[in-house]
């Protein structure tokens, strides 16, 4: 539909730009705050222009750490967060793909029971099963490990359901053609289903990476060592200092750094992500 409505366009742009400002302004302020020294922020003299301490603040937070309750530097935290978020995202996708494949394409006893069991777990978020999960992880000696950080968050009903729905839309004839083309179950999965699920996988990866990155409660419970902390917890610990001024410029620098990897993932996978949400390639 091609329409020429100058007023309508201007209004739409105004609303959208206003929305962008509302979202971007706090982020910008966090960035500005991260470029001044502690005294300026504490005295409430923070303006709208970045200050002279950018390099100093970021080097300090990345490689030296703060005098707060955590002594780990942010580079380690970033690494921890990245590793666990990637394991969570990849693990969830791998498990969901396989379980959805089993549920959709194989006839085995209690198939529907298995499906409903998976479905039921949707109703128990991490918070609800946190005590038993913690007990198991602790008994297995997985506290303060990447395994402990990621594995309990991997089993995922949402992703399984999503792939199940997608697999059910794949025409049966493709499976039959593959059967006649001498492709066994594993070949069919690898050569046909996986490539067809490409965009879905990308979309899920973005969502799950951010889900893993933003985990707070679970990492808080099972990490005790500073060098196993994730960045989301790091921010909290940098803010909470005892008997001293919070070094807000460092907290803000950490927040800005914590935002970058998810943004990077979204930007890099944007094309596939949007495709996965709107397009069905069949």
């Amino acid at each position: 539909m091609v329409e020429n409505r100058p007023f309508g366009n201007a209004l739409a742009h105004f609303i959208l730009i206003a929305g962008v400002i509302v979202i971007v302004f706090p982020v910008y302020m966090a960035f500005v705050a991260s470029t001044w020294d502690a005294a300026t922020i504490a005295n409430g003299k923070l303006g709208l222009v970045p200050g002279p301490h950018l390099v100093e603040n970021y080097t300090r937070i990345l490689f030296e750490g703060t005098g707060g309750t955590t002594r780990a530097h942010v580079a380690t935290m970033l690494l921890n967060s990245t590793i666990s978020a990637v394991i969570i995202a990849v693990g969830k996708i791998a498990i969901s793909l396989i379980s959805a494949y089993a549920i959709v394409y194989f006839r085995f006893p209690f198939r529907m029971a298995a499906f409903w069991l998976i479905f039921l777990t949707l109703m128990f978020p991490v918070e609800v099963r946190i005590y038993p999960t913690y007990k198991i992880v602790a008994d297995l000696g997985l506290l303060d490990t990447y395994t402990g950080l990621s594995v309990p968050l991997i089993a995922s009903a949402t992703a399984t359901l999503l792939f199940r729905q997608f697999f059910m839309t794949v025409p049966d004839e493709l499976l039959e053609a593959a059967k006649i083309d001498a492709a066994g179950p594993i070949r069919f999965f690898k050569d046909v289903l996986l490539p067809l699920s490409r965009t879905n996988i990308a979309a899920l990866f973005v969502i799950l990476f951010i889900y893993g990155w933003n985990q707070y409660l679970w990492p808080l419970l099972i990490t005790t060592r500073d060098d196993m902390q994730t960045i989301v917890i790091g921010i909290k610990k940098i803010v909470a200092v005892q008997d001293a001024l919070t070094e807000w410029q460092l907290a803000m620098a950490t927040a800005v750094l914590a935002m970058l990897p998810p943004v990077l993932v979204v930007v890099l996978m944007q094309k596939l992500f949007v495709k996965g949400l709107v397009e069905t390639e069949k």
Partner: peptide, 21 residues
Amino acid sequence: VEPMDRDIAMVFQNYALYPHM
């Protein structure tokens, strides 16, 4: 006998071509 071992080939109504290949 499995379809692949029957020495047959089939043409489907909706072609059933692998869309990504």
